[in-house]
Amino acid sequence: GTVKVQGITIKVPNPDKAYKIAKKLAKKYNLTVTRKGNTIKVE
């Protein structure tokens, strides 16, 4: 899958794990995490 952070896309082998990490970071930096299948977008 991929993770998008402010325009940066990161390929990740485990979208579930990445999503959990993204959620933690999002809370810390007051961002929104959206997930569509293997693509995770943080904005």
Rank of each mutant, 00 (worst) to 15 (best):
V33F: 03
I40T: 02
P13G: 10
I10W: 04
K23T: 11
N30H: 09
V42S: 02
V33N: 00
V12R: 01
R35S: 08
Y19E: 05
T9H: 05
V12Q: 01
K23G: 04
V3R: 03
K41L: 15
K11Y: 14
T9V: 10
I8W: 08
V42Y: 04
Y19T: 00
I10L: 06
G37H: 04
T2E: 11
I40H: 08
K36T: 13
K17D: 08
N38L: 02
Y29E: 00
N14S: 08
T34E: 04
K4T: 14
T34D: 02
P13I: 13
A18G: 03
Q6H: 14
G37A: 05
G7N: 06
I8Y: 07
A26V: 08
Y19F: 06
A18D: 00
V42N: 07
P13F: 09
T2L: 13
R35V: 08
G7S: 09
K27R: 08
T34W: 13
N14G: 02
T2K: 09
K20G: 06
K17P: 01
K27M: 09
A18I: 09
A26P: 00
K41I: 15
I21P: 00
G37D: 04
E43Y: 13
N30P: 07
I21E: 04
L25A: 03
I10Y: 06
T39M: 10
T39E: 12
V3S: 03
I40L: 09
K41C: 15
T32C: 14
G7A: 08
K36C: 15
V33S: 01
K41G: 01
V12W: 05
T39Y: 11
K17A: 12
T2C: 15
P15F: 14
K11N: 07
A18R: 01
K36S: 08
T32F: 11
N38S: 07
D16Q: 08
I8V: 09
K36N: 10
T9L: 13
V3T: 03
R35L: 10
K27E: 10
G7T: 08
T34S: 07
I8R: 02
P15A: 14
P13K: 12
L25H: 02
Q6R: 10
T32L: 11
T9Q: 07
V5M: 09
G1Q: 07
K28Y: 15
T32Q: 08
V3D: 05
E43G: 11
K24T: 07
K41W: 15
I8G: 03
T34K: 11
I10G: 01
A26R: 06
T34C: 14
N38I: 05
K27I: 09
R35K: 08
T9D: 03
K24I: 14
Q6M: 14
T9C: 13
K11I: 12
V42L: 12
G37E: 03
K23R: 11
T39K: 05
T39H: 11
K28G: 03
T2S: 08
P13C: 15
N30A: 10
R35T: 05
K11L: 13
V12A: 03
V5P: 04
N38E: 07
A26E: 05
I10V: 08
V42T: 03
K23M: 13
E43V: 11
N30R: 07
I40P: 05
E43P: 05
K23C: 15
N14L: 11
Y19P: 00
I8E: 00
K27T: 04
L31F: 09
N14C: 15
Y29N: 00
Y19R: 03
N38M: 05
V3G: 04
A26G: 06
A26F: 13
K27W: 05
I21F: 12
K27H: 06
I40C: 15
I21M: 07
P13R: 12
